[in-house]
């Protein structure tokens, strides 16, 4: 079964050991998805697998067969411009070196969907109640799987708030 990457079908890997991350970076030359730790501890490799954010370093490429993978390269849409959140990252300076950035952006886009669904988080006061109130703490907890070492955290959270406000209109 092929894997759909940003809408294009790619053949499955010839070596079962190849991670989705290495397939993207080394075989498809889609290097926007970053390798930070290769052990599931930093979030830099976050991609959307059938719409859910996952770590591509701990996903075997073979596990993505038949699935739809969306990477940072596939976010902007057909118009080739920037995604709302990408623009907000620039405006809010939610980046410095830029290495964790694609993972932060992919992660935040999926997070917005999780919030829309009403999924709770560990800082949600009452998980049995309805959809959580979106606070900075909620955003921060939900984004904690994406490390940033340059310290762009404030800008990232502000950019996400901008996106949430824009899409809520």
């Amino acid at each position: 079964m092929p894997i759909r990457v940003n809408g294009a079908e790619v053949p499955p890997p010839d070596d079962a050991r190849i991670s989705l991350l290495d397939l993207l970076r080394e075989h498809l030359h889609l290097t926007g998805t970053k390798k930070g730790c290769d052990q599931g501890a930093c979030g830099a490799c976050t991609v959307l697998l059938d719409g859910n954010r996952v770590l591509s370093c701990l996903t075997l490429a073979a596990q993505a067969e038949g699935s739809d993978v969306r990477t940072i390269e596939g976010l902007a849409g057909d118009r080739g411009g920037l995604h709302l959140l990408q623009q907000a990252f620039i405006e809010r300076d939610g980046l410095q070196c830029g290495y964790c950035t694609p993972g932060q952006i992919c992660s935040a886009i999926a997070m917005a969907e999780e919030l829309r669904r009403g999924d709770p988080s560990y800082v949600t006061l009452d998980v049995a109640a309805g959809p959580p109130v979106v606070t900075r703490a909620e955003i921060r907890e939900r984004m904690s799987g994406n490390l940033c070492r340059c310290g762009a955290h404030n800008g990232i959270v502000e950019a996400i708030e901008d996106m949430l406000a824009e899409t809520a209109r």
């Binding site: 599931g40 976050t46 954010r53 996952v54 701990l58 997070m111 904690s144 799987g145 994406n146």
Partner: peptide, 8 residues
């Protein structure tokens, strides 16, 4: 873990 890991 993290949201990504919980999705997996």
């Amino acid at each position: 873990a993290s949201a990504q890991i919980r999705n997996m």
